[in-house]
Amino acid sequence: MGLKNKIMFVVQRPPYKSEDPKLALTHALSSGVTSIHIDEEVVPTVAFIGDGILNCVRDQKSMEAYGIISNERHIKNMLATDTKTLVCKEDIERLGIKEERLIDASDMGADMTIKVVPFNEILKEMEENDHLMFF
């Protein structure tokens, strides 16, 4: 059997109260070292939907406030490692988050940016991935 190595991480909860969104990000980031176990790396896609889009708001200061690495830092690392990262357009509009408030990693030299897409495009991405992990 061939590998089913396209895995989509869907983040649907807001950051910090729960560990869930952070675990989604750290799991997605670990895709890059899966080739020590299998022939090909896991290819991750990360999508933020519902209240989960709030993970993508920039200028998180969790290190200053609580001494922990921010979800922003992990998202920037994802972008810097070319992880396809989607955020639901309808949800950022519903919650009043402007696109300019979304995280970018250009200061780390990343070409990849968070892509704002309608939910239908996220659904299409779900169809194209082999496995789904909802957080």
Partner: peptide
């Protein structure tokens, strides 16, 4: 195992 190829616990 037989019918649904993708699973999501939402």
């Amino acid at each position: 195992m037989d019918r649904y190829e993708k699973l999501a616990w939402i």
